[in-house]
Amino acid sequence: MKAVYAERPCPDDPLTALRFGERPEPEPPDDDWTVLEVRSAGLNHHDLWTLRGSGVPSHRYPLTLGVECAGTDDTGRDVIVHGMVYGREFLDCPVRDPAWTMLGEGRPGTFAERVAVPRHTLVAKPPQLSFTEAGAITGTWLTAYRMLFTRAELLPGRTVLVQGSGGGLSTALIQLGRAAGLRVWATSRTGWKRDLARELGADQAFVPGAPLPEPVDAVMESVGRDTWAHSLRSVRAGGCVVVAGATTGALPPAHLTRIFWNELRVLGVMCGTLAELRSLLTFMVAHDLRPRIYREFPAEDGAEGFRLLAEGDVGGKIVLNW
Rank of each mutant, 00 (worst) to 15 (best):
A254F: 13
D203W: 09
A210P: 14
G305V: 00
L15T: 12
A237W: 06
L15K: 11
E304W: 02
E27H: 10
D32W: 04
E105Y: 02
V266Q: 13
E296Y: 03
P29K: 10
V160M: 11
G53A: 05
T273R: 13
W100H: 12
W192H: 15
R151Q: 15
L142S: 07
D97W: 05
H46Y: 10
T34K: 05
L169S: 12
E304V: 05
R290N: 10
D217Y: 07
D12P: 00
G181V: 09
G71W: 01
G209K: 14
G315T: 03
G53C: 11
G87H: 07
S170P: 11
D32H: 13
L51A: 12
R189P: 07
H287W: 08
E89C: 02
R39I: 01
P9N: 00
R198A: 11
R278P: 00
D313Y: 00
E22V: 13
G249Q: 05
R60K: 11
T110L: 08
T171P: 12
R292H: 15
C93G: 09
L309Q: 04
I293M: 13
S165C: 14
L43C: 07
L176I: 11
P126T: 07
C271K: 11
P253S: 01
R77I: 02
T282V: 00
V95H: 06
A275R: 12
H46F: 15
P94D: 01
D217F: 04
D195G: 15
T171L: 11
L308Q: 05
G135I: 07
T34A: 13
E25T: 14
L281N: 00
E263N: 13
T159H: 14
L51G: 10
C240R: 14
L320V: 10
T110N: 12
D217A: 04
V184Y: 12
A180Q: 11
T64C: 06
A17V: 12
L18W: 09
T248A: 01
T187C: 09
T190Y: 15
V4H: 00
P215T: 05
F90G: 07
G139K: 04
V85W: 09
M1L: 03
F206L: 10
C10R: 09
W141N: 02
A275M: 03
L274Q: 08
P108L: 05
E276Q: 12
V243D: 10
F306R: 02
L176P: 07
P29A: 05
G42H: 03
P291S: 14
T150F: 02
G201K: 13
D195I: 12
G209N: 15
L129R: 07
A152R: 09
E153D: 11
R146G: 08
V117Y: 10
S130H: 04
L103H: 07
H255F: 00
D78S: 06
D13L: 03
H82F: 04
Q163W: 08
A299I: 09
A303V: 07
R107W: 09
V242E: 10
V223A: 09
P127K: 04
P215M: 06
W228K: 00
V115E: 11
V85C: 08
N44G: 14
P108F: 06
A134R: 10
A17F: 08
V241G: 08
H255L: 03
E199R: 14
G312H: 03
R278G: 01
A3V: 01
L103W: 04
E89W: 03
L176Q: 09
G181A: 10
A197H: 15
H287G: 06
L122R: 07
V123P: 02
L289N: 13
W49P: 00
V207A: 15
P252C: 01
T143L: 15
E263S: 12
